[in-house]
Design a protein around this nucleic acid. Structure first.
Lengths: 129, 129
DNA sequence: TTACCTGCAAACCATTTGCAGATCC
DNA sequence: GGATCTGCAAATGGTTTGCAGGTAA
């Protein structure tokens, strides 16, 4: 973990994120920080968001990368290898994970209709390294 | 569902996706189709991939959109409203969903280390509409 | 002093779109 | 014939980066 120098912009970003429940995008963060530091640049916001994620102080919500396509349009789950980035189909019986919607819905005021999940780890080829 | 006109480029894309297990990106599809139709353009590949997804003939693997950030770096699950696109934290006990890694790992030759999941549906505000 | 930080603007990359012409029905 | 398709190239949108100057330690 690299030692960071103090920066008021970064502190401001962290403080804003700690206090909101909105899960803002980088651009939304930018607009809020600009109210305090009108000269802040979008580049600085991106740089600091990435630094804070690297430090484990904030969390990035995304599944990044570019879209992939699958000739099999029937619902099924995918596995992503953290080593070689390959994507593989998983053999999970249809409906076998549906119960997690109920777990997630307990104590939630909205209506949960489904979930999107992928699993990650090492594929068989990358285990042998 | 709009009626589509025949196009050899689109058929070629569909055939390629039906026969591969690679879960290719749009660019990878482009490079393969170009071997058959050297003049095909990347724009055409994107247009047809989107059409095929709309028709339900292929599946898009992604969670699109831009990244969001969360001041809470502790592992937790998120809910995404399909109406208003708001993101909310869910109250799921830590580890309450860990067992799905085991379900997913049954019959899989690689090693599953974790999963990434978000739930979707209608938030409490959007239910009342 | 010197590493790290900033604003700015340009670069980048994936994806979309406007256009004029080609193709299917 | 007319709607849908294509290739091309330019536009878009989110994100990163190079640079020259500023700031924390």
């Amino acid at each position: 973990m690299i030692t960071l120098k103090y920066s008021r912009q970064r502190e401001s970003i962290k403080a804003y994120l700690a206090q909101t429940k909105e899960h803002p995008t980088a651009d939304t963060v930018y607009m809020h920080i600009r109210e305090v530091y009108p000269n802040v640049s979008l580049g600085t916001v991106y740089r600091n968001l990435n630094l804070l994620v690297d430090q484990g102080e904030i969390m990035r919500i995304s599944q990044g990368e570019s879209d992939r396509f699958d000739g099999n349009a029937l619902p099924h789950y995918h596995f992503l290898c953290t080593e070689c980035s390959c994507v593989q189909d998983l053999n999970i019986a249809p409906g076998a994970l549906d119960h997690i919607n109920i777990i997630a819905g307990a104590g939630f005021e909205g209506e949960i209709q489904g979930h999107s999940t992928f699993f990650y780890g090492k594929c068989s080829k990358c285990i042998d390294k």
